[in-house]
Design a protein around this nucleic acid. Structure first.
Lengths: 252, 252
DNA sequence: CGCTTACTTGAGTCTGGTCAAACGGGGTGG
DNA sequence: CCACCCCGTTTGACCAGACTCAAGTAAGCG
């Protein structure tokens, strides 16, 4: 487990100009909150693509909010089998488990360069004491994560391979569009089939064959080391899934 | 979705004599917290075995803490496929999603008669304002749930049928013993093979055949409409799993 | 230009799914 | 009390979706 090839920088994103606050999905802070948060913030962390931000078993890691970039959260079995449990995108709060429990129970790796806001772990309790609204938001974020995990579990447990893939792609595009990590139309997800396989609980080969079937239906195709999603609606229908993103939500 | 066949009763369990507080796994309240919680508590709900406490799509449900009994949390696909995402036991806080998000994204059904503490949904914010330590505990509970879901996802996605079953049984016994829902030695889990199948993402038939294999190894067997767990250690080893329960934890 | 990474494809195998039927205990109505 | 039924478990036969192994292609990089 190597440390992220990280470079600390002087704030490129002071809280007053937080790139998240500008996006319509995110709820803005009031002045006092802004003031607190900018003290709560300890610095910024910039990591390369493919870096490990947090590792299973680590103690005492920081608390972060993703400002820009993509990553994924995963767990390993002793023999190396990997399960990706969710993806992380701007606005996501990560490392909470490391703060509340003793040690991290999962790892996080980036899929693109990423900028994170670093918070002082020890100050979380003072956030709870002074800003109940923000504390409520932290809980909200944890609850939302739980909700996504429930959906993923439903998918892996009960959907067929092609439904799972369709669900995953629709889910990711939905989130990515809402948080603005994605630009093009059609959207291009920076995922390899290997990541997809480890998310869906399938083998790489079978994932590939399933991806081909989706491509034949004109729903999505692999291209330039990423997945180009051609028809989100079609994917959602195939997976029998209804989107729920799009509402305003908090961040820290 | 029928209302739980419920009977409201005058408090059998005043907060001062909360059955949870007596158990060593749970952290006790201080006097002020106790006072607040006993006002936060609105009443008790007693439900039969097999009742639906919360249903997907419901709005405005209450917030509950399980005092006694077992249940499970599940999601359905439109065509009826069911995935059980986790189990609920004494000390678990349920219905938080219904409070934070707009509507419930999952349902909860009981496996045994259950007594719940009913809280006033609207007062949650005042808990956050007046008792930051309790607010922190709510977040802790949400984070713990997330942790369990990660584990379940790893299991369903990457373990073989027999490993999954071994993991599930070890996991449940571990929790059940820690929270004291279970009595006998060897412990008897009140689950049908149907529940297990819907938890592991397997068919009923294959679950049965896998259960037989476990029985041949002397690890667990079905009996009296429940699963008798004969060798938790052996199950954990087979699943390559390490327990993490047993630490003191909060409840509300 | 060779190496690596990621995607493809085919062949053969096996885990797990489906269908069908039967068993056994507990409860219920005749 | 007995017959019946229902629920949960069990078993066998057969099928299919997914896995493994193996090899080949294409693009990017030092």
């Amino acid at each position: 487990m190597s440390e992220p090839t990280a470079a600390r920088s002087q704030r490129k994103f002071p809280c007053e100009e937080c790139p998240l606050a500008k996006k319509p999905v995110f709820r803005a802070f009031n002045d006092k909150e802004l003031d607190f948060v900018s003290h709560f913030k300890r610095g910024e962390l910039t990591v390369d693509k493919g870096a490990t931000i947090l590792a299973e078993g680590m103690r005492n890691p920081h608390l972060y909010t993703v400002l820009t970039g993509w990553g994924f959260r995963y767990k390993l079995l002793p023999d190396g089998r990997r399960q990706i449990v969710n993806y992380v995108m701007p606005g996501d709060l990560i490392g909470l488990q490391g703060t509340l429990m003793d040690e991290m129970q999962h790892s996080i790796e980036t899929l693109s360069p990423m900028v994170l806001c670093v918070f002082e772990r020890g100050k979380l309790m003072s956030l709870y004491r002074s800003f109940p609204d923000l504390a409520y938001d932290v809980t909200w974020l944890a609850s939302r994560e739980e909700c996504m995990l429930d959906e993923n579990l439903l998918s892996v447990g009960r959907r067929s391979a092609i439904e799972r893939l369709a669900y995953l792609l629709a889910f990711l595009v939905d989130r990515a569009v809402a948080t603005g990590v994605i630009d093009g139309a059609p959207p291009l997800l920076p995922l390899t089939q290997n990541h997809v396989a480890d998310t869906l609980g399938l083998s790489l080969v079978h994932t590939n064959k399933t991806a081909r079937r989706l491509a034949e239906h004109g729903l999505a195709r692999w291209r330039d080391r990423g997945c180009e999603v051609l028809d989100v609606e079609g994917l959602a229908t195939l997976a029998r899934w209804e989107t729920r993103e799009g509402r305003q939500r908090p961040f820290i």
